[in-house]
Amino acid sequence: MVQAVTDQNFETETATGVTLTDFWATWCGPCKMQSPVVDALADARDDVKFVKMDIDANPNTPQSFGIMAIPTLLIKKDGKPVEKVVGYHTKDQLNEILDKYTA
């Protein structure tokens, strides 16, 4: 399951382990394509926590990480950003990226 997070709880929810945050907006076409891929990954992997953030409702966190385009996926390990990927990515591409941090 992918949990929705806000500016208020983002740091707490992504402070431990490997996390993937999907930054998105309701008006973003590519975000609508990326969302089911992230949902499928969340169902398939229990070694990564998946969260999503609506950038329109929560502008502070995306700004603090320099998110300029969406969809952007931010991977953190133990609370520290380790990788940022912009644009649509397939399940295989994302699994390959996540495997670098969970192995």
Rank of each mutant, 00 (worst) to 15 (best):
F23P: 04
F10I: 04
D46K: 13
D43Q: 15
Q63R: 13
L98Y: 10
A4W: 12
D47K: 03
R45L: 10
D78M: 09
A40Q: 13
L73D: 10
K84S: 14
K77E: 14
D92V: 12
I70D: 05
G17Y: 08
D7K: 01
P81W: 05
T12G: 07
A69E: 11
W24I: 02
G29I: 14
A4Y: 12
E11W: 12
K84T: 12
I67F: 00
D56F: 04
T19Q: 08
P36W: 02
A103P: 15
L20N: 06
G87N: 02
D78N: 13
P81K: 11
K76Q: 13
V2S: 06
I67L: 05
D56Y: 08
F10V: 03
P59D: 05
V48W: 01
E13S: 10
D92E: 12
F23W: 05
D46C: 11
N58E: 01
A57K: 15
Q93A: 13
D92W: 11
E11I: 12
N95K: 10
F50D: 02
G79N: 11
T102Y: 10
T26F: 12
D99V: 08
F23D: 04
G66W: 04
E96P: 09
P81N: 03
K49N: 14
F23G: 00
T72W: 04
W24Q: 02
A103N: 15
Q34T: 01
P30D: 02
T21Q: 00
M53E: 06
P30S: 01
K91V: 05
C31N: 07
Q8G: 13
M53G: 02
K32I: 08
N58D: 12
R45I: 00
S35W: 15
V37C: 06
I97A: 07
E13G: 01
A57Y: 15
Q63Y: 09
L94Q: 01
D39V: 11
E83H: 13
V51G: 06
L20D: 06
F10H: 03
G66Q: 01
S64E: 07
A44W: 06
V86T: 11
D47Q: 10
P62D: 03
V37P: 07
M53S: 03
T72K: 04
M1I: 12
G66D: 00
I55R: 00
L98T: 03
T21E: 01
D78T: 07
K49L: 14
K49T: 14
C31E: 04
K84F: 11
